[in-house]
Design a protein around this nucleic acid. Structure first.
Lengths: 188, 188
DNA sequence: AACTTTCCACTACAGGTGTAGAGGATGCCG
DNA sequence: CGGCATCCTCTACACCTGTAGTGGAAAGTT
């Protein structure tokens, strides 16, 4: 499938390191260690750190995309089987849970987005990640607004990002479905 | 007043560096340079990097507190002079503008909060900063809710943080007063 | 004026970091 | 079997970073 699984192992570890130690914790040697690869491996695949971070961003965007696809498939199945209301509830609960189960993806995304706003070499990274992260929110929003295109995606995405950020940094409780849907419904 | 203004110059520069280059850009030598102090100065005042970051966090919390005080005084003045509605509008617009004028304070806070969630030596930093950042929001919320204590401060703070984060990293427009008040009013 | 204390500039150093490259194992083609 | 290409491991090195310490100016005290 993927030509080189070695690269993917490395990029997975970069994402883990971004989440657990921040961007300053991402060094070629640290990645080798976490990935249990011989020293120099990361340096071989991505000799420039910038290249490593860009590749990790793409990888992360893909992971986010896959998770979104999965939810959309789950929605379609449930909609056919249990009805639309039930299926929408499923999407909402997945959205809320995601803050917890994909904690490291979230933290890595924020870390990379902030880095990209400083470093011109990483330009484009932030936009790609933001797009990928918004897709599921946009999907949910479209569902509960009955397909109207004028829903304020920025407000809803901001809300989720902000609450999640406080949560994953230990500064607040997990977002709840009630909290999210109340706001989404209100601004719809 | 303060015994040593030198310390404050250093801490101001740490905050600037946090915003412009992230936590990995905060090195003793970089601070000396930005502060135009002889090499070794930062190292003399804060020999451990942890101590430097903790001091910068306190400094930042103070700055946030002062700005909040200012708005509260402005509110009191306006309330007496122009009426309560006018005064509330003032607070709201200050809140929204703050995302822009205090961009570097915001970025430094996020950077420090994320760092504190990883590094046990920085524990407490996140909580102090979160508290300081929430005070003005809490104030505004109390105003528009007529003093009821059950307003969901976490939701509103999350909303503002999330939208501001996207804005300051170049991923979204500036928050608008309409956006904020609509949500605040809705969840009230 | 001598002495002491405080404050600070400068230097030193051990480790970490980004990055390049040399050489070796492995497998493929003739 | 010999030659060649590919993939990788390991080493080297210049620079950066955190941190400690040394010596000397400035200021205050006796």
């Amino acid at each position: 499938m993927a030509r080189s699984t070695r690269r993917d192992v490395i990029l997975d570890c970069v994402i883990d390191l971004l989440a657990s130690r921040g961007i300053q914790g991402v060094t070629h040697r640290a990645v080798d260690e976490v990935a249990r690869l011989p020293p120099g491996s990361t340096s071989y695949y991505f000799s420039k750190k910038t290249a490593l971070l860009i590749a990790a961003s793409d990888h992360l965007a893909n992971l986010l995309g896959k998770d979104c696809d999965e939810v959309q498939m789950g929605f379609a199945q449930r909609a056919a089987r249990d009805g639309i209301e039930e299926a929408i509830g499923y999407v909402g609960s997945e959205l809320v849970k995601y803050a917890d189960v994909a904690r490291h993806l979230f933290l890595a995304r924020i870390e990379l987005t902030m880095a990209s706003s400083r470093d011109p070499d990483l330009s484009g990274v932030g936009a790609r990640l933001t797009l990928a992260a918004r897709r599921p929110i946009e999907f949910f929003l479209t569902l509960i607004s009955g397909g109207r295109p004028d829903v304020p995606i920025e407000t809803c995405a901001g809300l989720i990002d902000g609450i999640t950020l406080m949560h994953v940094t230990g500064q607040g409780r997990m977002p709840t479905l009630a909290q999210i849907t109340a706001v989404f419904a209100a601004v719809r």
